[in-house]
């Protein structure tokens, strides 16, 4: 008996369709354990739009900023490769001219000119990184935090090209040997994925403020931008604030208070 080509193709296609259908049904049936559910933690700090205000007047010295960076990097197992090519940073520092390019002038007051401003992920309302990510490995949560799913990242680095703030770092090497002291409560990353500041979402879930905020002695104010009574809103309502590259329309959620010297409440 010989199988004609037509018949062979028919059989083949039917078989393939059958396998595909079975796999799809299988997926439906075995989705999860029956009668289980997942909830948010009662202790968790909640907001509609997390935002940060950086009061640069309160950051008197470079050490103040470095303390915040160290707190962040220690908490999140950020490696130190000792070279700028492979460098990974969740929070860094820039002078006014580089943090706010286009807003500098030649006659800036020395204090502002020399000051190191903390720079971090802006958790933009319209994040370009999220728009370009081909796998939704980076995504915006309902509370405004732009998060990373390191399980899903394929390491294409499109998000790094898209970010207008240089907030993202790539694991060019295995980071583990370069972490001085591993914090066992937070995962490390693996080589080949992009990482960045997560607004300490893992701490907010436990009811704690972000690590940098905790280490800032009040220079960083963190809260819900959608709540008119929140401290961030109070501070923004009473002080002059700027954001990085607002003209790009990404709507950063990190605000900077510059000069004025007036203490906030």
């Amino acid at each position: 008996m010989s199988v004609t080509r037509r018949r062979f193709l028919k059989l083949g296609l039917t078989t393939l369709a059958g396998i595909g259908g079975a796999m799809a049904l299988d997926g439906f049936w075995r989705g999860s354990a029956e009668a289980s559910e997942v909830l948010t933690d009662q202790k968790a700090l909640k907001a509609k739009h997390w935002a940060m205000v950086i009061d640069s007047d309160r950051l008197k010295s470079a050490e103040n900023v470095q303390r915040m960076i160290d707190a962040c990097h220690r908490t999140h197992n950020v490696p130190d490769f000792g070279n700028s090519k492979d460098e990974i940073k969740w929070m860094g520092t820039e002078t006014y001219e580089h943090a706010f390019p286009g807003q500098e002038n030649g006659y800036l007051n020395e204090g502002i000119k020399e000051k190191l401003f903390p720079v971090l992920c802006n958790h933009c309302e319209n994040p370009a990184c999220v728009r370009v990510c081909p796998t939704q490995a980076t995504f915006k949560r309902p509370d405004g935090i732009v998060a990373m799913d390191y399980h899903r990242c394929i390491g294409c680095r499109f998000c790094m090209a898209a970010c207008a703030f240089g907030a993202r770092s790539f694991n060019f090497r295995d980071p583990r040997p370069f972490i001085k002291q591993v914090n066992p409560d937070f995962p490390t990353r693996t080589k080949g994925v992009v990482e960045k500041c997560n607004f300490c979402v893992e701490r907010l879930e436990k009811g704690l403020p972000p690590a940098c905020v905790e280490a800032s002695n009040g220079a960083l104010i963190f809260g819900d931008l959608d709540d008119p009574n929140s401290e961030v809103r109070q501070v923004l309502a009473t002080h002059y604030s700027i954001r990085r590259k607002p003209e790009l329309g990404t709507e950063p959620s990190v605000y900077y208070l510059i000069g004025g010297g007036e203490e906030h409440a």
Binding site: R152, I154, C156, R157, F158, F170, K191
Partner: peptide, 21 residues
């Protein structure tokens, strides 16, 4: 160029029309 080449099929597993990629 991919950092995690074994995960390349994530592009199909999580199709994302707002990504030009």
């Amino acid at each position: 160029d991919l950092g995690q080449p074994v995960r390349v099929l994530n592009v199909l597993l999580h199709p994302t029309p707002h990504s030009v990629m």
